[in-house]
Computed example of a mutant assay.
Amino acid sequence: MFFKALTGAMAAAVVATAAFAEDPTLRASVLKFGTVTWELNTIKHHGFDAAHGFDLQVQGVAGGSAAKVAFQGGEADVIVSDWLWVARQRAAGKDYLFIPYSKAVGGVMVPDDSPAQSLSDLSGRKIGIAGGPLDKSWLILRAHAEKTYGIDLKADTKQVFAAPPLIFKSALSGELDGAINFWHFLAKMEASGMRKLVDVADAATDLGLDPDTPLLGYVVKGEMLRDMPDLVKGLAAASRDAKNLLATDDAEWDRLRDKMNAKTDAQFEALKAGFRAGIPAPGPVDEDAAARMLALMIELGGKELMGEAQELPAGTFLQSGS
């Protein structure tokens, strides 16, 4: 009986030790077909998660709202969103923080044979906009048009708001005189024969903003940083490992191609180039530059966009040494 009990105790200890030794799981809830899945797939395929002490599990969802619901309800540990949303949530008392993922932004595309040479030429025309009236790119472009050309794009154009895929299809079919879309749709539109009228990054620069400020990133909860700092920092490190590989290795892109929904070689090359151009530089986020962007968003979108945020909340970004 003694040896049986001893054996049972030893077995329990082995199981407990094995459980303790397992890497913590990190549940990422992201768009099923979003560009972030390319990076997450790279992390998992090459074991960058295990190398940094965690087990990445990706949960695909149909939309950004579903990801936020999962995150806020505790069904996901990390999602991808823009830091302006994180700032709004922090101002409302939610302890969320942002790990930079991409600085890629959209722009305005027009048909290749369009006579338009600037935003002012779209007056009286129909513009398709991915998202809603508070889309950040749309707000920046409106401010740029007013500053540079003295026109009110909202009053002087007819806007059609719709999901990115619908704007993409409508633009290619010639139903729109101009289209504002997310960068990966713009890349495919340009590869399909449309041309870029203005880049949101250029419009932001014109407004005194820094286009190198990463807009999109991984969002985690502050309690995770407090309780499991190595897990949060491991995610940041695994993301950087994947970016370094994707920035330099064309073979890795060949492996990912069937996940990229690229219909042609031109679209594939444009998506690869666009992703690479959006990789933010390593190092801390310039919080002064972020504060300037936040101030502009408050001015343009007010409480409807930014809630109670009046300035950049402390702790919004995971910085070196955080």
Rank of each mutant, 00 (worst) to 15 (best):
D199K: 09
D199V: 06
D202P: 05
D202I: 02
A203N: 11
A204P: 02
A204G: 14
A204I: 06
D206G: 15
L207S: 11
L207W: 08
L207K: 08
L207H: 07
L207M: 09
G208P: 15
D210E: 14
D212S: 14
T213Q: 12
P214K: 06
L215A: 04
L215Y: 03
L215D: 00
L216F: 13
L216W: 05
G217S: 03
G217R: 01
G217K: 01
V220D: 06
V220G: 04
G222M: 12
G222I: 12
G222E: 10
E223I: 13
L225R: 11
L225F: 13
D227E: 15
D230K: 10
L231S: 02
V232H: 00
V232T: 07
K233E: 14
G234C: 05
L235A: 04
L235K: 01
L235R: 03
A236H: 06
A237W: 05
A237S: 10
A238R: 03
A238H: 06
A238W: 03
S239M: 11
D241P: 01
D241T: 03
D241R: 03
A242S: 11
K243L: 09
K243G: 08
N244R: 15
L245R: 12
L245E: 10
L245S: 03
L245C: 05
L246D: 10
T248P: 02
T248I: 06
D249N: 15
D250L: 11
D250Q: 10
D250P: 09
D250C: 09
E252G: 08
W253N: 14
D254R: 14
R255G: 02
L256I: 08
L256A: 07
L256P: 00
L256E: 04
R257Q: 12
D258V: 11
D258M: 07
D258R: 09
D258C: 00
K259D: 09
K259C: 00
K259F: 09
M260K: 08
M260D: 10
N261M: 13
N261A: 15
K263T: 09
K263M: 12
D265Q: 14
D265G: 15
D265P: 10
A266R: 01
A266V: 02
A266F: 00
Q267C: 07
Q267Y: 02
F268Y: 15
F268I: 06
F268S: 06
E269W: 01
